[in-house]
Amino acid sequence: MVSYISKRIVQTAVVLLGISLVTFLLLQVVPGDPVALMLDRRADPATIAAVRHQLGLDLPLPQQYLNFVNGVIHLDLGNSYFTKAPVFASLFRAFQVTLKLASLSFLFAIVLGISCGMIAALYRGKWLDSSLMTLSIIGVSAPSFWIAIILQIIFGLKLNLLPISGFDTPIAYILPSIALGTRYAGSIARITRTSMLDVIKQDYIRTARAKGAKRRAVIIHHALKNAMIPIITLVGTELGNMLTGSMLIEKVFSIPGIGKLAVDSMSNRDLPLLEGTVMYIALVFVVVNLLVDISYAFIDPRIRYGKGAAS
C-alpha cells in the first residue's frame, strides 16, 4: 500500500514537471506580444526593450524556463502584467471562491447522482428507472448556463427565494451549485446505474443472497463497493472540472472564481497570470487523479496488492 502510494506520488511530480515545460513552450508560441499590449501603441523601442528587460523576457528561453520553475517551487508566480498584483494571491483568492462552489455542487452531484443511479438499477425496466434515466439525459444535455438562467428566473425573480448573484453569503451559492452540479449528477446517475447492473449479475451477489442476507444489505455492502471503481473514475474527473472553475456559471452568477480569472488572463495576454492559471489547473487534475488512484487501492484489494500477490 505504502509503496503503491509513494510510487504514484513520484509519478505525479514527473507529470507536473512535464506540464510546466509544455505550458511554458506553448505560451511562447501564442501570437501577440504582451509588452505591446501593456504599453501605449506609440511607445518607443527603447521603452519596450526596457520593459522586456525588466520582465526578464530578453533572457534566453532555457533561462526563462528555469526562472519560471524556480518561481513555481517557491510559490512565486510573478506579478500580473495588468493589476501588478502577485499572481499567487489572485489565484488563491479565486480558488477560495471556486472551492466553495465546487464542493457544494460536487456534494449535490454525488448525492443526487449515486442515489438516483442505484434506485434506477434496483427498479430496472420499471417506470421509475425510465423516468430517472430520462431526467438524467436532460440533466446531461441541458447547457449549464441555460439551467442557471431558468433557476434564476424561477427561484430568484418569480419566487424571490434565493439571490441570483453574488458570492459572499452561503445561500448565494445554492443556485450556482445546482446549475453546475446538474450535468454531473446526470452522468454520475447513468454510470452508477450501469455499474450496479453489471455488479448485480455477478456470482458473489448470488452467494450473498444464498447466505440469507437481506436484499438491501446485499446491494449496499456487496454490490456498491464493487461498483465504485467506474463511479470514482468519473467523479474524479468531474471534481477536477469543478475545481478548475466554470466560466459560464461564474459569468451568469457574477462569481469571481478561477474560470473568470482564466478568461481575463487570456484576453489580456497576461502571461504570468495565464501560466499560473494553467499550472493550477494542471495541479488540480494531477492531484485529483492521484487521489482517485489511491482510493482505488482502498476499495479494491486486487489493486492494493498488485499482480504479483495472487497465488
Binding site: 456470482d203 458473489y204 448470488r206 452467494t207 450473498a208 456487496h222 463497493k225 464493487n226 476499495i299 486486487r302
Partner: peptide, 13 residues
C-alpha cells in the same frame, strides 16, 4: 449452497 465458480462466487473486495 455451493456454486460452480469459486473464482467469482466470493466477493473480491
Amino acid at each position: 449452497m455451493i456454486f460452480q465458480e469459486p473464482m467469482t462466487s466470493l466477493n473480491p473486495v
